[in-house]
Design a protein around this nucleic acid. Structure first.
Length: 504
RNA sequence: GACCCCGUAGCUCAGCGGUAGAGCAUCUGACUUUUAAUCAGAGGGCCGAUGGUUCGAUCCCAUCCGGGGUCACCA
């Protein structure tokens, strides 16, 4: 589908465009005054109130044409749906003359009255019609039929994933259910904003280009600023900046932040993705669990009209409360052995016994993590708060109030994947410095995902941050779950794709 | 990054050693309430790219490009 290449159908459309110009018709007029949407008419019209629909003006893209000599039926698609238009030569002789130069994909405006055809379909009888945009490209149009049970059957749907992602605008035109997913995405985000705003929390913006990156363990994208002649990193997480704002005196801040991580891509990873991070002063991770339950059940109800949603063969329930269990409890449940306090050798033995694959050089922490990943994670289908992580896995979380060696942290798992991450934020500056210096040592030893020491962040923590709860929710994954999509590419308008290489 | 599958007309697909086929879409004609409209006719393809094997390659082999999936990395 190269830009300059035109096939025979497209060359013919160019000719039609020239014919229209030759006839003195502007194929791209400036405006059209609409009075109704298709949905408005289809849901509002009854045979009794026909007089209320005696004069409607609507516009849309031609999606089907059935010409029958001196009368033509076509279907027009607008933002809200599709409606049939009836065009009769006697009524609109001038427009009817140029009908031969119009195609599926062109956009027209129509005014007329609403009626019901012999076969019962609510339609608009055009008394005037005007071309609003001549299309020069062919749409991969599918045919639809409604069978006897009233189910919609689609023939030859535009299904090529690659083309659908590369030409998303075409996908949106011909696959209407794709539009619905993105409407839901928008609704999820606006509902979250309202939820936070109602509680007095402040939406903020923080830098995407950062001289130091932090707040997560991930490889960054690196770029260069010419005037300053320095390297800058694209944000991998929002955490360190939002905490500075809590230090600055705001008591609730959040951001829908685009993050960039220079890592592999698959069904749940795109190199840029959206995270919502929120920090609330004077709260802890226990309080945050309640907030997350309320938020997610609100969102699911708002988007799906129900607290349940089907996803990847599961019926997920976002009805609060969600299950809460500690990491150790879940592991004990899965392998029938309490591994609290085990050293590296003992963990390795447990891993072997339970067929957990680990590299022979893995640290004790890594082995522990693998046991959880391979034995527990995939079993967490219904929303589950996994609580209390080992301190080594969480350099920015506060030490547990009663369990030595652990931090006050939870991750919310749904359908076997992580949806949210939260901790009581570490605000002890001495402890924080020690943890980041540990990270720096790990980094120096060759782990390029370990965090770097951010002195300004440490300075802020030394100025003093109140006790604070922080939460991150993966928006793309949330949208996937609430809309039943199992690929992140289906909840992003323009997922990252390899550039098509030009033939040489 | 590894492995498996895929790439044929605008779309969805069939074909498989003798340089291509269907449905829809398109074009011409008929048709003033059709709806996967119908009826009659027609055009349309560097069979992803490059090499190799062969008398001959869309088909077999190799490499490359792009996509999907699984795994790894990763949230």
């Amino acid at each position: 589908m190269h830009t300059l290449h035109r096939n025979d159908q497209e060359l013919r459309r160019l000719e039609e465009l020239h014919e229209l110009l030759h006839r003195g018709i502007n194929p791209y007029p400036p405006t059209f005054e609409k009075s109704h949407s298709s949905q408005h008419i289809l849901s509002g019209f009854t045979d009794e109130n026909a007089q209320d629909f005696s004069s409607v003006r609507l516009a849309g893209r031609i999606m089907a044409i059935r010409k029958m000599g001196k009368a033509t039926f076509c279907h027009l698609q607008d933002d809200a749906g599709r409606i049939q238009i009836y065009l009769k030569k006697d009524d609109i002789p001038d427009f009817y003359d140029i009908l031969g130069n119009l195609d599926i994909g062109d956009i027209i405006g129509v005014s007329g009255h609403v009626f019901r055809t012999k076969t019962g379909e609510i339609s608009v009888w055009a008394k005037q019609a005007i071309l609003l945009c001549k299309s020069l490209r062919v749409l991969p149009i599918a045919k639809e039929e409604t069978d006897e049970q009233g189910n919609k059957v689609v023939y030859d749907a535009f299904a090529d994933k690659e083309l659908r992602y590369r030409k998303r605008y075409v996908d949106l035109i011909v696959n209407p259910e794709v539009k619905d997913v993105f409407v839901k995405r928008s609704k999820i985000i606006s509902t979250m904003r309202r939820f936070f705003e109602d509680r007095g929390w402040l939406e903020v913006e923080t830098p995407i280009l950062q001289p130091l990156y932090g707040g997560a363990t991930a490889r960054p994208f690196i770029t260069h600023h010419n005037a300053l002649d320095i390297e800058l990193y694209l944000r991998i997480a929002d955490e360190l900046y939002l905490k500075r704002l809590i230090v600055g005196g705001y008591e609730g801040v959040y951001e829908f932040c685009k993050n960039f991580r220079n890592e592999g891509m698959d069904r749940s990873h795109n190199p840029e993705f959206t995270l919502m991070e929120i920090y609330i002063a004077y709260k802890d991770y226990i309080w945050m669990m309640g907030m997350v339950e309320e938020l997610l059940s609100t969102l699911c109800m708002k988007v799906n009209g129900s607290h349940t949603v089907s996803y990847d063969g599961h019926e997920l329930s976002f009805q609060a409360p969600f299950r809460r269990a500690t990491m150790y409890e879940l592991i004990t449940e899965a392998i029938n052995e309490d591994i609290r306090g085990y050293d590296r050798e003992q963990l390795l033995a447990v891993a072997r016994k339970n067929n957990v694959e680990v590299e022979s050089t893995a640290s004790g922490m890594k082995i522990f993590d693998e046991i959880f990943s391979q034995k527990v994670q995939h079993t967490l289908i219904q929303p589950t708060f996994v609580m209390d992580y080992p301190v080594e896995m969480s350099p920015l979380a506060k030490a547990h109030r009663s369990e030595p060696g652990l931090v006050e942290r939870f991750e919310l798992y749904v359908a076997g994947t992580e949806l949210a991450n939260c901790f009581s934020e570490l605000n002890d500056p001495i402890d924080q410095r020690a943890r980041l210096e540990d990270q720096a040592r790990i980094r120096a030893a060759g782990d390029d995902e370990a965090m770097v020491v951010d002195e300004d962040f440490l300075y802020a923590i030394e100025v003093g941050m109140p006790p604070t709860a922080g939460l991150g929710i993966g928006i793309d994954r949330l949208v996937m779950m609430l809309t039943g999509q199992t690929s992140i590419r289906d909840v992003l308008f323009f997922p990252q794709m390899k550039p098509e290489k030009q033939a040489h």
